[in-house]
Simulated scan of single mutants.
Amino acid sequence: MLHIAICDDDLILSKTLYQFIFETYRDIDLFIDQYDSGEEFLNKIISSKKTYDLLLLDIEMNKISGIAVAKELKKLSPKTYIVFITSHDEFATVGYEVSAFRYLVKPIKKAKLIEAIEAVKTELLSQKSITVQNREGEYVIPVNDMICLEAQNQDVLIYTLDQKILHRGNLNEYEQQLSKDGFYRIHRSYLINMRFVKSYSKTDVTLNGGLVLPLSRLRFKNFTTHFREYIKRTAR
């Protein structure tokens, strides 16, 4: 689930950004709010305690500037990633004092916008973890480190970057839990993290590290579509 706020007094640009993001990311849980001024945005944050994963913030707004909004937001919601929108490259240096994540220079290129959003998603995903238990103990596994999951009778074997963890689990439940995070069920026994896909054919998928897994014939066409969309979104 991704929560995005757009704060820009250019209503046409704000609407354009909203529509493009909504259409591009229609396959994930996404919430987008629009604000016409820095005052409106900060009042909402203060009154409702609402938080966002990403704020697309115009630097040059009437009354209160984007820089002032960012400074206040860092006190109220320090974990929100800020991507500044600006008409002038020289404003980029100003953002260091508020730890701006990225800058988008007008006119905004769609590829640059997607790149910024995907970078935020990657940051958020790297912070997301799951916890599993087996006889050896409890493991906290970063989702970004999970290469694939394999169903083995009543157990699930999780392949990570540095180990394999077998525990009692259900692959269907993992599929529901991780499908929004770039995971895809290529076979009844395998759920893979698409960020690790090296190549694929009609019969199998090769992951980084050399692991080759079977690709169900009935899932090939759908997998191809999902993987191409994933590549487009992440600009790999």
Score class of each variant (00 low, 15 high):
80 T>F: 07
159 Y>D: 09
29 D>F: 13
22 F>V: 07
159 Y>P: 07
223 F>V: 03
158 I>S: 05
217 R>L: 03
10 D>S: 06
113 L>C: 07
52 Y>D: 02
129 S>N: 14
109 K>N: 11
77 S>G: 00
235 A>H: 15
70 A>F: 00
197 V>Q: 04
78 P>T: 10
1 M>S: 15
31 F>L: 13
55 L>K: 08
173 E>W: 12
88 H>P: 05
151 A>E: 13
60 E>G: 06
180 K>H: 12
170 N>G: 03
7 C>D: 02
143 V>F: 06
223 F>E: 00
90 E>L: 12
89 D>S: 15
87 S>I: 04
156 V>N: 05
202 K>G: 12
104 L>A: 07
22 F>G: 07
212 V>S: 10
171 L>V: 08
11 L>F: 13
158 I>L: 09
171 L>F: 11
19 Q>T: 12
177 Q>T: 06
9 D>K: 01
70 A>W: 01
132 V>D: 09
64 I>M: 09
188 R>V: 02
229 E>T: 14
102 R>Q: 09
13 L>Y: 06
78 P>A: 14
99 S>W: 08
89 D>N: 15
177 Q>G: 07
211 L>G: 05
55 L>S: 08
208 N>G: 05
95 G>P: 14
206 T>N: 03
191 L>G: 08
83 V>R: 10
150 E>N: 09
20 F>I: 01
13 L>E: 15
229 E>V: 05
2 L>W: 00
41 F>Y: 04
215 L>E: 00
157 L>Q: 07
78 P>I: 13
64 I>L: 04
207 L>N: 04
196 F>W: 10
148 C>I: 07
211 L>I: 14
177 Q>K: 07
120 V>K: 14
50 K>G: 12
155 D>C: 09
39 E>I: 15
81 Y>M: 13
6 I>E: 09
109 K>T: 05
34 Q>R: 15
200 Y>D: 04
21 I>K: 15
55 L>H: 03
93 T>R: 14
94 V>F: 08
227 F>D: 02
172 N>L: 12
156 V>H: 01
45 I>Q: 00
137 G>L: 06
34 Q>S: 13
173 E>N: 09
209 G>T: 06
83 V>Y: 04
5 A>I: 01
157 L>F: 13
114 I>M: 15
107 P>K: 13
47 S>W: 08
49 K>N: 14
71 K>D: 07
185 R>T: 00
46 I>N: 05
232 K>P: 11
205 V>W: 04
137 G>Q: 08
73 L>F: 04
8 D>H: 01
80 T>V: 10
1 M>P: 15
86 T>H: 01
217 R>M: 11
137 G>A: 05
73 L>P: 02
100 A>E: 06
32 I>P: 14
118 E>V: 02
229 E>I: 03
134 N>K: 00
4 I>R: 09
100 A>K: 06
138 E>P: 05
163 Q>V: 00
211 L>E: 11
210 G>L: 06
34 Q>I: 07
28 I>W: 08
151 A>D: 03
80 T>R: 00
167 H>N: 07
19 Q>Y: 03
58 D>F: 10
6 I>G: 08
53 D>I: 03
209 G>K: 00
39 E>G: 14
106 K>E: 11
21 I>F: 00
74 K>S: 14
4 I>N: 08
60 E>L: 05
54 L>Y: 06
30 L>R: 11
211 L>F: 09
121 K>D: 03
50 K>A: 15
218 L>H: 13
24 T>I: 07
200 Y>K: 01
139 Y>C: 04
58 D>S: 01
196 F>I: 08
153 N>H: 11
